[in-house]
């Protein structure tokens, strides 16, 4: 299995290091040709406005939207989650619309309001996951097919799954905890296809 990691800007190297530690082959995706033959795709953290501009500039918008909508297992972290959304509560940038969620960018304020928190994810086992939220987005609304995997104490959902699409408002790739990456790989494993 080869996991493509969008490498136009952001912390793609951290995702790649995590996947390689798990023994998974990866490919940096900068142009449409890099998408050929991948079995899953990760859109990393970065700046969503920047990612959106660069997707258009490099011709990635159409191909990634098509692939993610037609069943390619896809995971977005933070800016990546913003990209996957159907709608944003502010006017820009226009998301790809591949997950039935509405997202608010920079939902908690500026950088001084970024935070770390322990979050329970029943799918990952008993131990909470230490989640790092950096200028993080929040989910304002979601469709009936979207499953909440975990929430903050105030009830705000921070990890969601719709079919084989995964979105997290935080950055598992910045920790040493590989459980979310393993969860995504399981989701992406073709033998687990529903």
């Amino acid at each position: 299995m080869t996991v493509g990691v969008v490498a136009v800007q952001g912390d793609f190297a951290e995702h790649i290091a995590m996947l390689n530690r798990l023994g998974v082959a990866t490919r940096e995706v900068r142009l449409p040709k890099d998408l050929e033959g991948i079995d899953a795709l990760i859109i990393p953290g970065g700046e969503s406005t920047t990612l959106r501009r660069l997707f258009d500039l490099y011709g990635l918008t159409g191909p990634i939207t098509t692939l993610a909508s037609s069943g390619l297992p896809t995971w977005g972290t933070c800016a990546g989650m913003i990209m996957l959304a159907a709608k944003l509560t502010d006017s820009r940038p226009e998301p790809l619309g591949v997950m039935d969620i509405t997202v608010t960018r920079n939902a908690y304020g500026r950088q001084v309001d970024s935070f770390e928190a322990d979050v329970e994810f029943p799918q990952l086992g008993e131990d909470p996951f230490h989640a790092i939220f950096i200028r993080a987005p929040a989910v304002a609304a979601m469709g009936p097919d979207v499953e909440v995997l975990g929430s903050l104490e105030d009830g705000a959902p921070v990890a969601l799954r719709q079919g084989r699409r995964l979105a997290t408002a935080f950055h598992p790739e910045l920790t040493e905890d590989t459980r979310f990456h393993r969860y995504f790989l399981e989701l992406a494993n073709p033998s687990n296809e529903a």
Partner: peptide, 9 residues
């Protein structure tokens, strides 16, 4: 971590 998000930019 915020600096990590700026990489490649």
């Amino acid at each position: 971590g915020l600096a990590q998000m700026l990489k490649g930019g």
